[in-house]
Design a protein around this nucleic acid. Structure first.
Length: 278
DNA sequence: GCCCAGGTATAAA
DNA sequence: TTTATACATGGG
């Protein structure tokens, strides 16, 4: 991978091409906004505008160092999705179809706390409203950056109470956000340790947080902690498993189960007629 | 008004 | 252990 500076940003050259559209709008993150063919977003308290220029990924607003240490990591550009997709496509016909439908999806490596908090907000909620709540949360409590706001960190959030959160209109989830912030900022749940912990121990640790059940835990592991074997099973995935893989569980997809899940999820969400209803 | 949304806590069977 | 219901909010 190479980096080339241009006025106001950096090109990343030689990384595998992927789809920003599918990656940033497949339900794994809630803070990117598409304007024209450029995507504006924030990660780890840094803002950027990203788009492809031919095969090069342009990152406006980043230095070479930030591109290398932050954005390559965020988009996980050192991992070959071509290899992962080959391994997965051999596992099932439907999965192979799903990969063909949206081959450009990648799993992001988001900030663990932001991921946990976002998916707590996601429970029994819809994506437009999740984005609204997360947006208000950042505006009200996040650090001001040049264009928008950073995601409020766990320590800041831990000092808030339920009344403070009324502004973001997260409803019954407010108390869960606060419990999560307190357990994360105190170290009672050590997010960094969960990157390497045995997967079941990591699940058990996360579900100690009020409002974190199996789904939120898996999403946090997959989208925030780099655990590609995690397998979030929401209402869609339950229908998918019932329709195409009856009697089977996510473990059947092996070490990249979470990646498989994301292709299947996006494919079926865009083509719901593929599912057996009821 | 009614229904549902990338679920979870809680109580009851 | 498995199954039912409430939960805040807002868009369709």
């Amino acid at each position: 991978m190479d980096f080339e500076e241009f006025e106001g940003g950096v090109y990343v050259k030689g990384a595998e091409k992927f789809s920003l559209e599918d990656t940033l709008d497949c339900g794994q993150c809630f803070r990117w906004e598409k304007i024209g063919d450029k995507f504006y977003g924030t990660a780890y308290k840094k803002e950027a505008c990203v788009y492809f220029r031919g095969d090069d990924l342009a990152i406006e607003g980043a230095s070479v160092e930030e591109a290398e240490t932050l954005w390559c990591d965020y988009f996980d550009l050192r991992v070959s999705y071509e290899n992962i997709k080959k391994e997965l496509a051999d596992k099932s016909e439907v999965l192979s179809e799903a990969i063909e439908y949206c081959p450009g999806i990648r799993i992001l490596r988001q900030d663990p706390w932001e991921t946990l908090c976002s998916f707590i907000i996601s429970q029994n909620n819809n994506i437009p409203r999740i984005k609204g709540i997360v947006g208000r949360f950042c505006e009200k409590f996040g650090e001001k950056l040049s264009r928008g706001y950073a995601f409020p960190d766990a320590r800041t959030t831990a000092r808030l109470n339920e009344e403070d959160l009324e502004y973001i209109r997260s409803g019954f989830r407010a108390k869960y956000i606060i419990d999560a912030a307190r357990k994360v900022s105190s170290g009672e749940v050590d997010m960094e340790a969960l990157r390497r912990a045995p997967i079941q121990a990591a699940r058990d640790d996360l579900t100690k947080i009020k409002g974190v059940g199996p789904k939120v835990a898996e999403c946090t592991l997959l989208y925030g902690l780099g655990r590609l074997e995690a397998f979030p099973e929401d209402v869609w995935m339950k229908k998918i498993m019932k329709t195409f893989f009856p009697g089977s569980s996510g473990e059947a997809f092996g070490r990249y189960a979470g990646v498989a899940q994301q292709y299947l999820f996006h494919y079926v969400r865009m083509n719901p007629q593929k599912l057996i209803v009821e």
